[in-house]
């Protein structure tokens, strides 16, 4: 991933977890073994720094959103800390997805413009429609009448509805679905940008500081130093 300091907040999660009790780098990294032993994961330890890469992580891999990252054990402000700097292509994808759907919306507008019938074509279509003699719908089956289902709309009601729809829908393709999905992905990005770093911090904190039996979703229990 490129190093772009002003915009990398989009796909990067940085932070630290206090190590209580304080741990050496080897001991801290050993506690993270379960996260790094998932299939497709490779990592290197260089002194106090661990660099990992996950090639196409499984859906339930706790680091699936952040397949690349650097972890470092440091002493700062009198505390032992695990500092992390993680990269998420999924967050970047989610950030860019609205642009793709906006492009689809624009595409639908362009196509609708191209497909808009000329006055001559409209007149021809109306003439064809006038030639077609539509029949009143058949009455409902007697069982449906007996059960009280509403009768099908009459020709006049149908004509009225079609006129209303015609007035509302001028284009062959609506850009609304694409705009809705653009908005949805913008919302998902915002959710993910806060949720995923929070989840990963919680995962690290539990892996590093909780007793082994408390790792899976149990409430935090303060550990004694």
């Amino acid at each position: 991933m490129l190093k772009l300091p002003f915009i990398d907040w989009i796909w990067r999660a940085k932070g630290f977890v206090e190590l209580a009790p304080p741990r050496t780098a080897d001991s801290a990294f050993a506690k993270l073994d379960a996260l790094l032993e998932e299939s497709g994961t490779s990592y290197e330890i260089d002194g106090d720094t661990l660099t990992y890469v996950k090639d196409n992580p499984a859906a339930q891999d706790k680091l699936a959103t952040f397949p690349r990252g650097t972890l470092q054990v440091v002493e700062e402000d009198g505390q032992s800390r695990l500092k992390y700097n993680l990269t998420s292509p999924a967050l970047l994808f989610c950030f860019l997805a609205p642009l793709l759907f906006l492009a689809f919306a624009q595409g639908s507008i362009i196509l609708s413009d191209l497909e808009r019938p000329t006055e001559a074509e409209k007149a021809e279509a109306e003439a064809e429609k006038a030639e077609e003699e539509e029949e009143e719908p058949k009455p409902l089956n007697v069982i449906d009448e007996w059960l009280g289902a509403p009768a099908p709309e009459t020709l006049e009601e149908k004509k009225q509805r079609e006129e209303e729809e015609e007035a509302e829908k001028k284009d062959k393709f609506s850009s609304t679905p694409a705009l809705v999905f653009a908005g949805l992905f913008a919302f998902l990005f915002l959710v993910g940008r806060f949720l995923e770093p929070w989840l990963i911090r919680r995962t690290f904190r539990r892996a590093l500081n909780d007793p082994p039996e408390e790792l899976d979703g149990e409430p935090d229990i303060p550990t004694e130093a």
């Binding site: 999924a90 989610c94 997805a97 759907f101 196509l111 393709f173 993910g192 995923e196």
Partner: peptide, 29 residues
């Protein structure tokens, strides 16, 4: 639990759903 929906899975799934509602509809027409 091994099928739990995650944020990443939801985004991925919705991307395909979005394609169905947009591009595929245009092609279908």
């Amino acid at each position: 639990d091994s099928w739990q929906l995650t944020w990443k899975e939801l985004c991925t799934d919705l991307f395909y759903v979005g394609l169905g509602y947009t591009v595929l509809r245009m092609v279908d027409a």
